[in-house]
């Protein structure tokens, strides 16, 4: 925005450079295609609202020490369970007199950490398994998909619980457990996409140029599967946050005194009737972030849908 007011000349030529139908370099072709997607996403107000919230979340996590009014760990038993707005506690204090707002701000780091690790790992595992199964077919397909089915047959949280209890409680193990339980749907999607792509003429064409299976999968099929996976991951984000919170709630995720949102709800459970804010505030935070991811996912679906862009 500031660009356009300061340098109107330059930015209008940049706009033309980005929206041209005749790009002159690889870089320009790629950038202009991204820019078009961005324009389309920008025209979707709900998605932009989601992006704004997530951007705020990242900034809050980044500047947590500056933003938090107090340390998330400092206890003040004299001021325990202070209601919101009283005694300098904007969102109130918890049973040990810690400032809930500060804990939420620091907790956003943990949430982001879990979410980004899972979002990176689970779809990649799914992509490998799904495209290999879909493209190679035969016994490889059968084996890989039956393994996927086994994972899908268990309720997510129960399976994660089993993994965590086997690996030991802690945030890294929680992440690992969530990844292990959430990759199968991505494998399913990737396989379905691959099945529709593998008989397309453009895959036949590259096959007839002598490309091997590995090259076809990684360089020609992956780029087409990734958009549906990105959409699915954004929509699943809320679920991932909730699973992490659920593990935290059951005491198997982040360990006290770490300000993980799920663990905070769990700690507030004892006081839910008399001191509603202790459990409600972290619940609201989870709700807002989940909503943001869902809105973004919906917007991305409109922009990235390969069926719409293929012609």
């Amino acid at each position: 925005m500031s660009m356009s007011t300061e340098l109107p000349q330059k930015s209008s030529s940049l706009y033309e450079w980005l929206t041209t139908d005749t790009p002159t370099s690889r870089k320009q072709a790629r950038l202009s295609s991204w820019y078009r997607s961005w324009l389309e996403l920008r025209s979707n107000p709900m998605a932009m609202f989601g992006i704004a919230i997530l951007l705020a979340l990242v900034l809050i996590a980044w500047f947590a020490p500056l933003l938090a009014p107090q340390s998330p760990f400092t206890q003040d038993l004299a001021a325990r369970l202070t209601p919101p707005g009283e005694g300098g506690y904007i969102l109130g204090s918890d049973s040990l007199g810690r400032d809930i707002l500060s804990r939420l701000i620091y907790g956003s780091r943990i949430t982001l950490y879990i979410v980004s690790l899972v979002a990176l790992m689970a779809p990649i595992v799914g992509l490998f398994v799904g495209t290999a199964a879909g493209y190679l077919g035969g016994w490889i397909d059968v084996t890989l998909m039956r393994i996927t089915d086994i994972f899908l047959a268990f309720p997510k949280l129960i399976l994660a619980l089993a993994f965590v209890s086997a690996l030991g409680a802690g945030i890294e193990n929680a992440v690992l457990a969530i990844v292990l339980t959430s990759w199968p749907p991505y494998a399913r999607i990737a396989r379905a996409e691959t099945l529709t792509i593998r008989n397309a003429d453009f895959i036949h064409a590259i096959k007839l140029q002598g490309a091997g299976a590995l090259r076809i999968i990684t360089r020609h099929i992956w780029p087409l599967c990734i958009s549906s996976l990105v959409i699915r991951v954004t929509l699943d984000m809320a679920g991932i946050i909730l699973t992490a919170a659920g593990l935290g709630f059951l005491g198997l995720g982040a360990q006290p005194p770490s300000p993980e949102w799920g663990a905070m709800i769990s700690a507030g459970r004892k006081f839910i009737l008399d001191h509603w804010w202790v459990a409600t505030m972290p619940g609201l935070a989870i709700f807002i972030v989940s909503l943001a991811f869902n809105l973004l996912g919906d917007g991305l679906r409109d922009v990235l849908d390969p069926k719409k862009n293929s012609k």
Partner: peptide
Amino acid sequence: QMVFQDPYASLHPRQTVD
């Protein structure tokens, strides 16, 4: 080498000519 029937299906939608 082969040239296919439907030019809308025989080019990868996410690859430039280059």
